[in-house]
């Protein structure tokens, strides 16, 4: 499956899951800020990606599930250097270059873009044997 095929499916999934126009689902659109995703939508997206691409996504694999509760990773409302390193290791599909300049935990949702989802699926499919 090509990157364009994956993008087209992800676009459809996000439009259905959040009731937005497919035209709004651009690669750089953020799930929370631009597309209005709430916490339950992230689970909905996980379920839909699993079905559409025939993959299994473990809890915390696509979106972090306990970052804000970890005192080593968040201090004074900002994600620490250790936190950034942990995100990079656990979520290689996410581009942190913009977030690192002002790593406020309240803006963590902005790192989840449509492109990050496409990259995640690409990585996931590439890791499936055969």
């Amino acid at each position: 499956m090509t990157r364009d095929d994956i993008y087209a499916k992800v676009k459809e999934i996000l439009a259905d899951a959040m009731g937005v126009d497919e035209g709004d689902v651009t690669p750089e659109a953020t799930l929370r800020g631009d597309l209005g995703a709430e916490s339950i939508d992230f689970l909905d997206i996980v379920f839909r990606l699993e079905q559409a691409f025939g993959i299994k996504i473990q809890q915390g694999e696509l979106f972090p599930d306990s970052l804000a509760q970890n005192a080593d990773f968040v201090q004074d409302g900002k994600v620490t250097a250790r936190g950034i390193a942990a995100i990079k290791e656990k979520l290689p599909h996410v581009d942190l270059s913009a977030f690192e300049k002002d790593p406020q935990v309240s803006k963590i949702g902005d790192i989840f873009t449509v492109e990050a989802l496409v990259r995640f699926v690409q990585n996931k499919l590439a890791s499936v044997p055969g």
């Binding site: 916490s39 339950i40 689970l43 379920f47 809890q59 979106f63 509760q69």
Partner: peptide, 12 residues
């Protein structure tokens, strides 16, 4: 519908 298990909710 979608249901959430409150003990494991993503909003923490």
């Amino acid at each position: 519908l979608m249901f959430s298990v409150l003990e494991n909710n993503m909003a923490g």
